[in-house]
Simulated assay, not measured.
Amino acid sequence: MTHRLARLLATRDWILADGATGTNLYNMGLASGDAPDLWCETHPERVSALHRQMIAAGADLILTNSFGANASRLRLAGAQDRVQVLNLAAARLARAEADAAGREVVVAGSIGPTGEIMAPIGRLTEAEAVRMFTQQAEALKQGGVDLLWVETISAAEEMRAAAKAAQAVGLPWCGMMSFEPGGRSVMGVSPPQLATLIDRLPCPPLAYGANCGTGPAELLLAVSGFSAAGCERALIAKPNAGVPRYQDGGLIYDATPEVMAEFAVLARDLGVRIIGGCCGTTPEHLSAMRAALQSRPQGARPSPEAISSRIAALMPDR
């Protein structure tokens, strides 16, 4: 069976993934500290509206509003018994908007970290992590997602557990780690180490890469490190839209649509196949990114110095 994302990767030079879910929902009224995933039941019309806005801005791939909908993270909201219901709702909301788009749009079931530290450093065992991820993945599959989108992971053990969950439910998947400004994840994994891990998994992903953690320049520098391990799978880059600040009752990130458009072109020229944005990336950012990708010709592979200087030149003064 050829999956929808695999078909697009076989026929397209780049695929535009969507922007932020959580930060956009906060700006749509989600209270600080509340779990965005619960809005799939309490405010489904707002979740659907965000999906529509991302598709209208040009997204070829949208994420379900289920990043924190695993039993461990939902326990913080007293909703640990609602994993199946919330993930099913999240998948159905995204699927409905994708199917109504009038063009092919991939629905990716968002799975974030458990929020716990994996053994041997922490107490969460691999078997427990696999169980939690599988519970979430089964509901997302039932709701109609095309694949699983494992993101913002920091530990190799947790990435392996998510891969086993994808294998258990029989869905293709993509995997991303979040890297800090120093170039490693919170748990010390470097980009070359992630690339090596991905190739050795018993159920490797369709694509892998980096998301969140840093702004566009820093994330692209991390992505450039994947080539050091020789892994040739499709790459993903989904950075935050810069650094946030609180303004007019909402979170505003300092990377303008022009900055994110430059990031998108640099990512494409670096060889990234799936390009999007994480925290702070609005439909306006996404629209500028698509316009730049469509209008600007393919360029030479940018050096680390070119990445830093071209992004810095467009960043507003803080």
Rank of each mutant, 00 (worst) to 15 (best):
L124G: 04
L124S: 04
L124N: 13
L124A: 08
L124M: 15
L124V: 05
T125Q: 00
T125K: 00
T125L: 03
T125Y: 00
E126N: 05
E126R: 11
A127C: 07
A127M: 01
A127V: 07
A127I: 06
A127Y: 04
A127G: 06
A127D: 14
E128W: 00
E128R: 14
E128N: 05
A129S: 07
A129T: 03
A129E: 02
V130S: 12
V130K: 12
V130M: 14
V130E: 15
R131S: 04
R131D: 05
R131V: 00
M132E: 06
M132R: 09
F133W: 04
F133Q: 06
F133G: 07
T134L: 12
T134N: 14
T134S: 14
Q135W: 08
Q135Y: 04
Q135G: 14
Q136C: 12
Q136G: 06
Q136P: 11
Q136F: 07
Q136K: 09
A137L: 12
A137Q: 08
E138W: 04
E138I: 04
E138K: 09
E138P: 00
E138Y: 01
E138H: 03
E138V: 08
E138G: 07
E138N: 02
A139S: 15
A139R: 02
A139C: 08
A139H: 01
A139V: 10
A139D: 11
L140D: 11
K141H: 11
Q142C: 05
Q142F: 02
Q142T: 13
G143E: 08
G143W: 11
G143T: 12
G143F: 11
G143H: 12
G144E: 10
G144K: 07
G144Y: 04
G144R: 09
G144D: 06
G144F: 02
V145W: 06
V145N: 11
V145A: 05
V145E: 01
V145C: 09
D146E: 08
L147D: 13
L147T: 13
L147P: 12
L147H: 11
L147M: 15
L148R: 05
L148Q: 09
L148I: 10
W149T: 09
W149P: 02
W149H: 15
W149E: 06
V150R: 03
E151L: 13
E151D: 15
E151V: 11
E151P: 07
T152N: 07
T152K: 08
I153Y: 00
I153D: 00
I153N: 01
S154F: 02
S154I: 01
A155Q: 14
A155F: 00
A155M: 11
A155L: 02
A156T: 10
A156G: 01
A156Y: 01
E157W: 01
E157N: 08
E158Q: 13
E158D: 03
E158A: 02
E158V: 00
E158M: 03
M159K: 01
R160T: 05
R160C: 03
A161H: 00
A161Q: 02
A162V: 14
A162L: 07
A162Y: 04
A162Q: 09
A163V: 02
A163L: 02
A163C: 07
K164Y: 13
K164W: 03
K164Q: 15
K164E: 15
A165R: 07
A165S: 12
A165C: 10
A166I: 05
A166G: 15
A166H: 07
A166C: 10
A166V: 05
A166F: 05
A166W: 09
Q167T: 04
Q167K: 14
Q167G: 14
